[in-house]
Design a protein around this nucleic acid. Structure first.
Lengths: 129, 129
DNA sequence: CCTTGACCTTCCAGTGAGTGGAAGGCCTAT
DNA sequence: ATAGGCCTTCCACTCACTGGAAGGTCAAGG
């Protein structure tokens, strides 16, 4: 299967798949003409990667998860730990963003948004401490 | 004021301040020895930038906000629009992350996390559709 | 057989917002 | 005079792609 079809199957841009090959996540064989030839197992891996990335796992995590996936004697605790650490990072990020959101909401609410210059948003950003 | 003191005042790494000069956000004058000499107005700007960045505004937004801040005849509606668009982006991002979090939470909860290989997390990532 | 257009290849550069580090100049205190 | 702590510039690296240029390959239609 050529890269275009592989991309369609896995739901990833062809460019991304080439990149994943570059960094060693997939190793499709090559046809005589130099075209990448994706086996079903490659497609399966790419789909795995697409899903893991969609859950926000870093490429590093994906690499580890893929290795565990391929290791039939893995311990689920290893998988769980990766997921749990990732979950913690996401929760931190959500909390940070929620703080920003709350502040911004207040500022936007209090800003008249007309043609006058007075603006609590700029006031907040620029006021001397 | 030298860059070290400016950094301490503004709460930004010196490296970041140099970067901000590179991209034209601040333009401190130079002493005879080549050292940057930050005026109070520069410190004020840097503080503004630090706060805007802490609220998650992009450098592009910061540039625009800074220009509005310095323009005494600005319309607050312009400021408000920037903030509101940023707020919308943040809310989208929070929603995306919350989706990931929910999925991950379920998966982590359902994973035994012992030394056996069975794992709903890998199952979810690798199962044929 | 030739062309057209859709594929495919590699390689290079850029994104955002810095961060790390090397090599070297300057300033103050001892 | 020298030590150390500043400061300078410049280059490379981060992350996960993404865009584009230049060129090779393949199948279909004329």
């Amino acid at each position: 299967m050529n890269i275009g079809d592989a991309a369609a199957q896995a739901g990833l841009p062809a460019k991304t798949i080439r990149y994943y090959e570059d960094i060693g996540l997939v190793k499709p064989r090559r046809d005589a003409n130099g075209y990448r030839a994706f086996a079903q197992s490659d497609i399966h891996k790419l789909t795995f990667l697409a899903r893991a990335r969609a859950l926000g796992f870093s490429i590093g995590d994906c690499r580890d998860l893929l290795a565990l996936w391929e290791d039939s004697s893995r311990a689920s605790s290893d998988v769980r730990q990766i997921a749990q650490e990732h979950l913690a990072r996401i929760e931190t990020k959500i909390a940070d963003l929620a703080d920003m959101r709350d502040t911004l909401k207040t500022l936007v609410r209090d800003c008249s948004g007309d043609d006058r210059p007075d603006c609590p948003i700029l006031k907040r950003l620029g006021d001397p401490t």
